[in-house]
Structure formats: structure tokens, C-alpha cells
Design a protein around this nucleic acid. Structure first.
Length: 595
RNA sequence: CGGGACGUGGCGCAGCCUGGUAGCGCACUUGCUUGGGGUGCAAGGGGUCGCGAGUUCAAAUCUCGCCGUCCCGACCA
């Protein structure tokens, strides 16, 4: 029997001054966690109980599709050199040295270790498929930990890895994870949505994120209430309403117009009396390759090569950097003034695509500047853009005719209200927390680390991989964000530290006290997680604490014991029901254990 | 890493501008009181004022440096 009077549950009346989001404030106030350093938290009794319940749900569901391992967090440098991530991860990787001066790091994920095992042990297609997982701490030296447990430097991740003989096999492993994740988040009582996610430059084909809507989140998700379309903003697309092109002026060739002092899209559009939709926005960027790309591996001194990348967008559209990164597989930065002058021979504000020799192909065409044009401009005619001459713009610009893009690409950020690409209804954008991510990795690690198996023809092939992650703390955080009010929060029973708190109004009243003891004991014997608030405190104190700490049900034992009843209080709705003492176990069995 | 803020008993804050005794609420200890929404009264304990240097007869207070924490941005397999 858990007796509150003997437990360490340090609840606070006030939230720490540096807590911003609800889950952070309440986790601290309810005595779940305490901060040790930026992005590093200790879990106390209640926090750990809830945490363990989440872990157990994850484990039960994962055991249905895979096998649990336990891998070290301390990794030798060589392993990460082999995958190329020792340098790729930069400062996000925690590094340290052993007494002999050997370099080590703390694992931020375990692709390397898992692939190392696969490389050494897997020999035949007969051993595939495999799904291996673990639930273990991960370490990331985040540039900015924030929002309590939402972004931290050490956290518990369920990470799994699948190895299959071919893409069809990977599809099956992926689907198994998708379904297992749905079961996990359902059992945790989360209201979540599954969204298409950016698979980045890793070459993966498919990726889904499991998202919980909350203003505290860090991700933007685009979704449609009319159909099931949902995607991360980094990936989302929309259908654009048609735009009426301008008519050609003069002979239809690019036509110089004087636009003195008109630099911004808005200004020029207004000045010329056209819509920004008929304007070209010219963005001047440089690739910003850290000297750590695969090609320059090993040559410490080799200089990072920078290349001009010019992006054209419709005047009223915003560049989506994730899409740009996915397109050119290299980080970029804005051009400096001198670089702009060098390429365009013109000050910023009048930049355009005319008069520059653009690369015909990103890969093969050497060092020439790259011109990427957003798909929203493909097929458009007679646009207006900068003339690369101070105080002048050009009319009659038609992509493909007056200038030749290196490539057309989807580079635009969706905005709320645009049409769903599936059904045409208006899209909405919400912030959300990512609680899980499933990802088709492909051959990246098999290739770099040399994992090979023989297929049924005796031919050596690479196993194809998938990786899948769940953040345990984020499930807890998201659940609190989903269910809280000014007095505290309530967790779904499955992940609450206790399902029921029994609160006798007084421990000095023998009748009340003995009924409370009896009720708590019978519920515990029946298999419920019960805590008895046996403290010699006034009822108000017990009620306030009970409201705060996330337990979904309270049984108040008070003067009605003389009538043979106690009160069951539903934390989320504050609904109160009188229940006969003798039937209390059956009451909760019907509510929490039915089905 | 760029911008901003903060750092004073366990928690929340005042004091700093205008240098000289460290203060309030909560929590904690003891006693009485109260007993269905953080009861009231009384008496107590607890603080290198983040760290270091400087100015000064004298620094929580002024100056400089460092560290830490939070927020915005950049970043985020």
C-alpha cells in the first residue's frame, strides 16, 4: 500500500520562474522532475512511475514485432568514422576521451552499433528480416534545450532498426512499425496524428511522424479537415489557384522599366500596378558546406567549396529551407553583399535571372551558379523581375524562354487556407510535438559500414534498413499538454503514476479513516494502482495536491461513510459520483478494466 | 553562435538607481488551534546575495571579466 505520508512527493505551490510551457510547470510543481542542468532532468518518484508505465507499453507492443537489445551508450570514434557521422554530427555529438586518449562519443542514435552487429553476424537472406530495438538513453548536445522535457540533452528513446533483403521486405517492416506505433500511442491515451515527413537528404523514400497537436510544440503540421491529408510543413504541398498572367508588352522580349528606389516585392508590385503573384522573388544564396562532406573526408585542410545558388519564387511565396536542403543536399546561407555584386553586377533589390550563365545540371556543370525555380513559376509567362541594374526591373520574363533554370523544384512553404492537394479543401496549420518517427533508411549504413548478405542466388547484396524512434519523455509531455487546467493536469490511467488517489477528509475520524484504508486495500488487491493520502492535513491541502499530480481518479472519503458511500471524482471533468463502499472495486473494474 | 533577460535561505520575489543593519510570502521546526478546497495564532531554524577581480574607509548595491539558467533566432539523425 502506497501511503502518501511516507512518500517523497514534493509538490510546489508555485512554478519555477524559468518554466514557460504548461507541462514544464506542472512536472516540476507535481514533484515529477527536478532540473539538474540545462536540458538534463532527474525523475523523482511520481515521474519515474509514469515514465515506467510508458516504457512498459512501448515494450509490450514492440515485443510483438521485434526483439529487444541493450546497447552501450559509449561508442568508439572508429564506429562513427565508418558511417561518416563523426564529423557530420558536428557539435551535437557529445565527445569524450578515455585515459589512453582514445576518442569516444555518447550515442545520439544507434544505427552504427546495430549495423555493426548486422555486419558481423548477418550472412544470409535466410536470417532476414530482423527487427531489433532497445529502450535506452540518448545524448545530444542541443544548441538550445527548451520547454522542460520537450527538447533535452539526455532522453529515453525507443529506437528500432529493421534489416530486410529487399524493398518489399522493408515495406512490411515499416508497416509493422506504423501499426505498433498506433497501438502504443492509442494505449497511452494520446490524441495524435500521423503526418508525411521530410525524409531529408538521406535518400529515404518514405517517412512518417506521429504528432500531437499542442501550442507548445516545435513542429508545424499541415492538415486537411476534409480528407486524411497531413504532412509536416517541411514536406507539405498544396494546390494553387490559377493566376492570370500579364499580357506581353511591346515585342514580348524582356522589357526594361524604370523603378527608382523600388526594392521590395510589395513596392515594385504597387509601383507597377500588378499583383505580387506576377512578380519573381530572387533569393541569392551560397552553399555552405562544412569541410566534412564525404568527399573531403580525411583531408583536414581541404577548403569547403562554396557555390552560388539562386532561387526564384513567386512574389508572394516563402522559401521552405527544408525543401531546399532536400533538393540540393547541402546547407546554404544568404549571400553577402560582395558576393551579390560579384554575381549579379547589381545591388540587392534589383536581382533577376537575366544575363547570367546558369549551370545546366547541378552535378555535372562544374562551378557555374545554380538557378532553382519553384514549380509555382513553371509554365508562367510575362513575369516581372529584377534587371540586375540599380533602379530597373524587367517585364515579359518567361521561364524556359528568357532564362533557363538548372532545375524546377518544389521549394515553397504552404500557407494556411491554400487548397489541399488531395481534395481541394482549405488546409490548416498547427504546431505539434513529434512523439514518434518512422523512416525508411535504405542502404546508407549498410553501404558505408559494409553490411552484406547472400541472397537466394548466392549473390552478395546489401540489406535494406529502416529506423524508427519514439521519445518516451515526449509522450509524457504531450499527455500533460493535452490535459491540464489552472490547478494541474490529468494523465490517461494507463500512464498515470497512480490510477486512483484515496483521500480521507480526516485521519482523526476513525470511521472515515478505516473506510479509506479498506477501500484502498480492496482496490489494490483487485490490481489497481492506488495511493492513500493518509497525511494529517486539512482536506483542502489533499484536494489541491490530488488535482495537481496527474492522477485521473480521486475517491473522497468523508461524512457520507455513515450512508455507506464515498465520492468518486473524475479529474478531467471534475464530475462527482457517489458510489456504495461495498461496490467500489466493481465500479472501477467496470470503468478501467472492461474490455 | 547572434539578440534579449535573469542570478539574493528549498520555491516565488523585494532591496541595487541614490554604497553603510540582508527583508517579505510560501515551505520547514515546536506548541496551541482548525478540520469538505492550500485554517489561524505564537515562537524558532536556515542566506559565501552565482564566481573572480577592481573602485572605496565600507560593495547584494558601482566597474570589468567569467560561469550558469531562461526566452527569441540560427540549429535540430
Amino acid at each position: 500500500m502506497h501511503r502518501w505520508s511516507q512518500l517523497f512527493i514534493p509538490t510546489l505551490r508555485e512554478a519555477p520562474a524559468d518554466a514557460e510551457v504548461a507541462s514544464h510547470k506542472f512536472l516540476v510543481r507535481a514533484g515529477y522532475i527536478r532540473q539538474l542542468a540545462a536540458g538534463i532532468y532527474s525523475f523523482l518518484f511520481l515521474g519515474n512511475r509514469s515514465f515506467n508505465k510508458i516504457v512498459e507499453i512501448v515494450r509490450e507492443e514492440m515485443d510483438k514485432i521485434g526483439q529487444e537489445f541493450y546497447l552501450p551508450a559509449l561508442h568508439p570514434r572508429e564506429l562513427w568514422e565508418a558511417s561518416g557521422r563523426w564529423s557530420l554530427m558536428g557539435e551535437n555529438l557529445f565527445r569524450l576521451q578515455d585515459r589512453k586518449g582514445g576518442d569516444l562519443c555518447l550515442g545520439m542514435t544507434e544505427e552504427e552499433v546495430m549495423t555493426e552487429i548486422a555486419r558481423k553476424e548477418l550472412r544470409s537472406y535466410k536470417q532476414l528480416p530482423q527487427i531489433w530495438y532497445q529502450i535506452a538513453p540518448k545524448f545530444r548536445d542541443e544548441p538550445r534545450p527548451r520547454s522542460g522535457l520537450l527538447r533535452v540533452r539526455q532522453f529515453m528513446m525507443k529506437d528500432s532498426y529493421s534489416f530486410d533483403i529487399d524493398a518489399a521486405g522493408l515495406d512490411v517492416s515499416y508497416r509493422k512499425h506504423y501499426n505498433a506505433y498506433c497501438r502504443i500511442f492509442d494505449r497511452c491515451g494520446l490524441k495524435y496524428m500521423v503526418v508525411e515527413a521530410d525524409s531529408g537528404a538521406m535518400g529515404g523514400k518514405e517517412s512518417h511522424e506521429f504528432m500531437v497537436r499542442t501550442p507548445a510544440g516545435e513542429d508545424q503540421i499541415v492538415s486537411c479537415d476534409g480528407c486524411n491529408y497531413a504532412a509536416n510543413l517541411e514536406k507539405a504541398t498544396s494546390t494553387l489557384w490559377p493566376v492570370e498572367d500579364l499580357k506581353a508588352e511591346g515585342d514580348g522580349k524582356p522589357l526594361l522599366v524604370h523603378t527608382p528606389g523600388q526594392k521590395t516585392i510589395e513596392d515594385v508590385a504597387k509601383f507597377l500596378g500588378v499583383s505580387p503573384k506576377n512578380k519573381i522573388k530572387t533569393l541569392a544564396l551560397m552553399t555552405n558546406e562544412p569541410a566534412s562532406d564525404g568527399a573531403s573526408k580525411g583531408k583536414e585542410g581541404s577548403k569547403a567549396k562554396s557555390r552560388a545558388v539562386v532561387v526564384l519564387m513567386r512574389g508572394d511565396h516563402q522559401l521552405n529551407e527544408a525543401k531546399l536542403n532536400a533538393t540540393i543536399a547541402t546547407p546554404t546561407r544568404p549571400m553577402e553583399e560582395a558576393e551579390i555584386e560579384m554575381l549579379f553586377q547589381s545591388p540587392a533589390g534589383y536581382l533577376g535571372p537575366i544575363g547570367i550563365e546558369w549551370a545546366k545540371d547541378f552535378k555535372t556543370d562544374g562551378d557555374k551558379p545554380v538557378l532553382l525555380v519553384d514549380k509555382a513559376l513553371e509554365g508562367r509567362t510575362n513575369l516581372i523581375g529584377g534587371a540586375n541594374k540599380k533602379d530597373y526591373h524587367l517585364k515579359n520574363l518567361t521561364p524556359g524562354k528568357d532564362f533557363h533554370p538548372t532545375a524546377y523544384a518544389d521549394l515553397r512553404s504552404v500557407t494556411a487556407g491554400e487548397a489541399c492537394p488531395n481534395c481541394g479543401k482549405p488546409l490548416r496549420i498547427d504546431t505539434a510535438v513529434e512523439v514518434g518517427h518512422i523512416f525508411k533508411l535504405g542502404y546508407r549504413y549498410s553501404e558505408s559500414m559494409g553490411a552484406r548478405v547472400l541472397d537466394r542466388n548466392g549473390k552478395e547484396v546489401m540489406p535494406i534498413m529502416g529506423c524508427y524512434g519514439i521519445g518516451v519523455e515526449r509522450i509524457l509531455t504531450a499527455a500533460i499538454e493535452q490535459g491540464n487546467d489552472e490547478d494541474g493536469f490529468w494523465l490517461p490511467a494507463a500512464i498515470a503514476p497512480f490510477e486512483i488517489v484515496v483521500a480521507p477528509v480526516s485521519v482523526k475520524d476513525e470511521a472515515v479513516k478505516s473506510v479509506a484504508e479498506d477501500v484502498a486495500q480492496r482496490l489494490e488487491i483487485a490490481g489497481f494502482d492506488v495511493i492513500l493520502d493518509d497525511r494529517d492535513e486539512r482536506p483542502g491541502v489533499k484536494f489541491k495536491d490530488a488535482d495537481l499530480v496527474g492522477i485521473p481518479f480521486r475517491i473522497t472519503v468523508g461524512k457520507k461513510v455513515t450512508e455507506g458511500t464515498v465520492e468518486v471524482v473524475f479529474r478531467s471533468t471534475r464530475e462527482v459520483r457517489d458510489v456504495t463502499i461495498t461496490t467500489i472495486v466493481e465500479y472501477f473494474q467496470g470503468m478501467l478494466r472492461a474490455g
